[in-house]
């Protein structure tokens, strides 16, 4: 019973955390963009402009809701809903910290430690395409449809390379559970991160993560300059807000997955010495803090790249996905396999 209450609390906390981080991502995106362009950025709403996300949210909700006359009403609403739900679902399997004891019982800081965690993430990610595809199709607009087609093509293409680079990680860890994967990286005083074993795999995964979240240089589905707004051209009010929000939540959770898979999750240098000298709860909080810091760095990296690199052309995108990343990830998998076989 206690366990269920704890998990429900965890779910609520995670939900609020995702929403808050996504809201502040929109704000920090504008700040980062401004800083990289030698500007200051939003600083009028509240101290340092910290209330800007609130103002944006209120604006989004208050805006008039427009539905195209010839659109499919049900699917039109379903699109952003699916996007939002799938974006939020990913956080369920991410291990946020080490186990803690509550009332003499060991509990994991994870909503569900399912033994196919990484497969679950891949599955939910591919479901996310439906949100964009359905929304773009139901809009009854050529720009929206083109954006949706681009989005689905891109996501399906890059999922292959992504899956292949994850296979290499699964081979070294010997488990599909994200919890085990993170625990497996605490060797060398908490520095046995997979990035040192799988640099090529990390690079491929990172590029694919950019493509999966529709971030620059792979933001072709939205590409304001060519497609007006891509799949959300016809959307207004909070439905548009949901699409944009889902993108930022996706960014947050891909950063979390990257951290879990390659940067040791909540592991940090000399954590075994810290663990021996501090209280269990304090130690768990430290781990969560480290994990969040790593995630925030990756969110910043996503933004940093966005304001550095221009957009790909669609044929270049397909070339990179199919002719470069997929073969490279297969080679990476074969090398990993050979090394494991040699070490046996």
């Amino acid at each position: 019973m206690e366990l269920i209450i704890f998990k429900i609390c965890l779910v609520l906390v995670l939900f609020l955390l995702s929403i808050t981080i996504a809201a502040y991502s929109t704000f920090s995106e504008r700040k980062v963009a401004a800083f990289m362009q030698d500007r200051i950025g939003p600083n009028r709403a509240g101290p340092f402009g910290l209330l800007q996300p609130l103002a944006d949210g209120i604006k989004m909700i208050m805006k008039e809701e427009i539905m195209p006359a010839d659109s499919n009403k049900l699917l039109f609403i379903l699109g952003p809903a699916i996007s939002m739900i799938t974006a939020l679902m990913t956080s369920a399997v991410i291990p946020w910290g080490p186990d803690i004891t509550i009332g003499g019982e060991k509990v994991q800081l994870q909503v569900a430690d399912i033994n196919v965690g990484i497969l679950y993430i891949m599955g939910v990610l591919s479901l996310g395409v439906y949100g964009i595809m359905i929304g773009g199709w139901a809009s009854n607009n050529k720009f929206a449809l083109l954006g949706a087609v681009r989005a689905s093509t891109q996501m399906i293409s890059y999922e292959l390379a992504m899956g292949m680079s994850i296979v290499a990680i699964i081979m070294t860890t010997g488990s599909l559970s994200l919890g085990n994967m993170v625990e497996g990286q605490n060797g060398w005083h908490g520095m046995g991160w997979n990035i040192f074993l799988q640099p090529l795999g990390f690079l491929i995964f990172l590029i694919c993560a950019f493509a999966e979240t529709n971030r620059t240089p792979f933001d072709l589905p939205e590409s304001e300059t060519e497609l007006v707004g891509g799949y959300h051209t016809e959307y207004s009010s909070m439905k548009l807000g949901f699409y944009l929000f889902a993108e930022y939540i996706n960014m947050f959770l891909s950063s979390a997955v990257i951290t879990c898979l390659y940067f040791g999750g909540y592991n940090f240098p000399f954590m075994d010495m810290v663990q021996a000298n501090t209280h269990e709860i304090l130690f768990a909080l430290m781990c969560v803090g480290v994990f969040l810091a790593k995630i925030i760095f990756f969110i910043f990296f996503f933004m940093w790249v966005r304001w550095t690199i221009p957009r790909f052309r669609f044929d270049q995108l397909m070339n990179l996905g199919w002719k470069v990343l997929l073969p490279l990830s297969i080679v990476n998998m074969l090398i990993t396999g050979a090394v494991i076989l040699y070490n046996q």
């Binding site: 990289m36 940093w304 550095t308 690199i309």
Partner: peptide
């Protein structure tokens, strides 16, 4: 990759530069 890293260096340099606003 080297070209992208060079680009990232340029943007991070501007990130810490004095703002003209």
């Amino acid at each position: 990759i080297p070209a992208i890293l060079a680009g990232l260096r340029v943007t991070i340099y501007h990130f810490f530069k004095k703002k003209v606003t």
